[in-house]
Amino acid sequence: MFRLNPADIRRQFKRLGIKADVDVVEAEEVIVRKTDGKTLVLANPQVLLVKMQGGMVMLQAVSNSVEEVEAIGEKAPEISEEDVRLVAEQAGVSLEEARRALEEVGGDIAAAILLLEERKKASGAS
């Protein structure tokens, strides 16, 4: 299998004038949930986590196999309008942003608020 080299990736970013920290992530699989409801599963991948200036993060994954499946895990929990309003109010974001954050964290209100706060800090640091 083609191997990603963290030092080579760092050099490439440096040539582009981008400061980046590159770390190898030991992973058994990478799961990508697509917007059409299907899921891609990369088995035994080599994964690099690239943290760029401004808070941007990029993941690079290389694998010999990818499988597309209908769904993995349980169905997402129902998210009430009351929860959406609470998260939006506490995090100071729109209802749409609050709903997306709740969906990302499986309906966990505290985790959604923390996620939105982290994003606000990251976008403010740019």
Rank of each mutant, 00 (worst) to 15 (best):
F2T: 13
R3Q: 13
R3F: 10
N5H: 10
A7F: 09
A7D: 15
D8S: 13
D8E: 15
R10G: 00
R10D: 06
Q12K: 06
F13A: 03
K14I: 06
L16K: 13
G17W: 10
I18F: 03
D21C: 00
D23V: 09
D23Y: 10
V24F: 08
E26R: 13
E26G: 12
A27P: 09
E28H: 14
E29I: 03
V30D: 10
I31V: 15
T35S: 08
D36Y: 07
D36K: 04
D36W: 09
G37S: 01
G37E: 00
G37Q: 00
T39N: 07
T39P: 10
T39Q: 08
V41I: 12
A43W: 04
A43M: 04
P45F: 03
P45H: 01
P45E: 04
Q46F: 01
Q46L: 03
L48W: 07
L48F: 11
L49W: 02
L49S: 10
M52H: 05
G54I: 00
G54R: 02
G54M: 00
M56Q: 15
M56Y: 15
M56C: 07
M58L: 12
M58S: 13
L59G: 12
L59I: 13
A61Y: 08
V62P: 09
S63R: 05
S63G: 14
N64Y: 00
S65H: 12
S65I: 05
S65Q: 14
V66C: 05
V66E: 11
V66Y: 09
E67K: 14
E67A: 12
V69M: 04
E70I: 05
E70R: 10
A71L: 09
A71V: 10
I72T: 08
I72F: 09
E74K: 15
K75M: 14
A76E: 09
A76W: 00
P77R: 02
P77S: 07
P77W: 10
E78A: 12
E78H: 13
E78S: 11
V84L: 06
V84N: 07
R85F: 06
L86G: 06
L86C: 08
V87R: 07
V87L: 01
A88F: 01
E89T: 14
Q90H: 10
Q90C: 03
A91I: 07
A91L: 06
A91E: 04
G92P: 08
G92I: 05
V93S: 00
V93T: 01
V93E: 02
S94Q: 08
S94R: 09
S94T: 11
S94P: 04
E96A: 14
A98D: 03
A98W: 05
R100V: 12
A101S: 05
L102I: 12
L102S: 06
V105F: 15
V105K: 14
G106L: 04
G106S: 05
G107M: 09
G107N: 14
D108H: 02
I109T: 15
A110V: 15
L114W: 04
L114D: 12
L115N: 05
L116G: 07
E118P: 08
R119V: 10
R119K: 15
K121G: 04
G124E: 10
G124F: 00
G124T: 01
G124N: 08
A125I: 05
S126E: 11
S126N: 11
S126H: 09
